[in-house]
């Protein structure tokens, strides 16, 4: 008679707290919470903009609340964390070749950082200058 009795370990819902790599994966995925919230804030702003000047000013007044500014600082940092993970993983999803040579991972990642920098500079130019 077989004495086999395989023991199956249950993962539970806190598995991601037990390993640093897994924790950082969940931190990456949960950046979606603030990114989602920011999209919704913009959507409300757009709706307010279409509601006229009074509605827009009321929406904007909400953004000047210190708690709102703290929220946006957290959102910025967490979104930048998303960006760093996105850029570092992007080469894995790309198999780019120039002639007989594969484009190196750091070229792809570096280019994405350059685009982020460019977009940020252009955005700030529009905000401050135009």
């Amino acid at each position: 008679m077989s004495k086999r009795k395989p023991y199956v370990r249950k993962m539970g819902s806190t598995w991601w707290t037990k390993n640093n790599f897994h924790t950082m994966y969940i931190v990456r995925e949960l950046s979606s919470l603030v990114i989602l919230a920011y999209s919704v804030i913009l959507l409300f702003g757009l709706n307010a903009l279409r509601g006229g000047e009074a509605a827009f000013d009321a929406w904007f007044a909400g953004l000047t609340n210190p708690l709102a500014i703290v929220f946006h600082v957290i959102t910025l940092l967490w979104t930048l964390y998303h960006a760093t993970t996105w850029f570092s993983l992007a080469p894995k999803a790309a198999n780019l070749w120039i002639g007989e040579n594969r484009v190196a991972d750091n070229v792809i990642t570096g280019s994405l950082y350059a685009v982020l920098g460019g977009v940020t500079v252009i955005g700030l130019l529009i905000a401050f200058v135009l």
Binding site: Y25, K92, A93, N95
Partner: peptide, 26 residues
């Protein structure tokens, strides 16, 4: 796959399964 990426990190032979799967998704 949700692209956790830990598979490639632990591989003792430096295989990159996470890359294979993302290219597989494409």
């Amino acid at each position: 796959c949700t692209f956790v990426g830990y598979c490639s990190d632990v591989c003792p032979k430096k295989v990159d399964p996470a890359a294979a799967i993302q290219l597989g998704k494409v």
